[in-house]
Design a protein around this nucleic acid. Structure first.
Lengths: 185, 185
DNA sequence: TGGAGCATGTAAGATGTTACATGATTCG
DNA sequence: CGAATCATGTAACATCTTACATGCTCCA
């Protein structure tokens, strides 16, 4: 039996102070983005399903000066479903769908210099990601240290930081190796 | 404009000595699996499309003692298309859809011990992956050292090895931290 | 006045997985 | 005799992305 994890991701986000589709999306883009992505095209329909299944409730709130919003809250049944999902064993070890590595795999069909340029671009983007992670980390440490979620959020962030760092080191070493290959010819 | 990378992955595999849908699948599962997956449900229809577009040719081969097979070969046009794709800049830096990390993110809703068990399971699987990579690596080094593809294949493998190793280290440290959190209570 | 941020939603299409169907040979 | 390996394929389904549509307020 296959489980729809996205549904539970949204359910979980409801426990972190996000109560609208819009704020859920922001949270995903800001904190979950390195290991889970969800688009509006999934968020709003899923929120509807959650209510239908009794895992969440909605209340339309009229705001002055701002558009109306629908506030979603997790129910007891929803909380149970979330814990159930947390308890269930993980299916597969994740794999990364990596366009860049795929291209590198076939790179003997292109000149070394082209591969080097691609590696340099990749390294730059990894560095950008690394700084983003670092700034999120210091933000959590300073402003959320008493928050219950904080330690687990830092663990997941640390995972991102360490794997990104490993990838950056690999990039630098591979660039070096490719340059040596070029010189040897 | 969005590019269908899977199509090019199959096209690229045609240049590595794979000529049937079956052998392409084996190559994917053996060597590409850590950064790209393709199922038969995609391979066979894509191979058909490749022929329709003139990027590959088919020839049905009658084998004695074995079922017939269709042998696909890349055409000049296909080779050009492959190089074109290789040259094109990478769109996005990849992200890992990681069910395990997603669960950890919400783990304050479960007891620490449960999280520790999950981390231990995850570590075991990472170790298994690590040994798989290492054995593929030594296989390539010993039996393919003269093959043109070898160095690029080793680069991609090294990427897998390093990021997996970083994840393993993170696992061990996080288990430790969680145990300390448990003791502190 | 125009853009950014807040806010919700849908429809079409792309992409990918799973289960199923078929059938030969080889090896233990 | 049964399992594994070789070999090809499809239909249904699940999942996800993209583009589009709407409209308010605040600020420069």
């Amino acid at each position: 039996m296959k489980i729809n994890h996205t549904k539970f991701a949204i359910l979980g986000l409801l426990t972190t102070g996000c109560h609208t589709g819009y704020s859920i999306k922001q949270m995903i883009d800001g904190s979950l983005n390195h290991f889970w992505k969800i688009s509006y095209g999934q968020i709003y329909p899923t929120l509807k399903i959650l209510v239908e299944e009794g895992l969440a409730t909605v209340k339309e709130t009229i705001q002055e000066g701002k558009p109306n919003k629908k506030e979603y809250r997790i129910t007891n049944k929803g909380m149970e479903a979330l814990q159930n999902w947390l308890r269930s064993p993980i299916e597969d070890i994740p794999f990364e769908k990596n366009e860049f590595i795929l291209k590198l795999f076939f790179s003997r069909h292109e000149p070394e210099t082209t591969a080097i340029v691609k590696l340099e671009t990749y390294l730059e983007r990894l560095q950008a990601r690394y700084s983003t992670y670092s700034s999120i980390e210091s933000m959590i440490v300073t402003s959320l240290s008493n928050e219950e979620d904080a330690s687990y959020w830092l663990f997941t962030l640390d995972y991102g930081i360490r794997t990104t760092k490993a990838a950056m080191d690999w990039c630098r070493d591979t660039i070096q190796k490719l340059k040596e290959m070029g010189n040897a010819k």
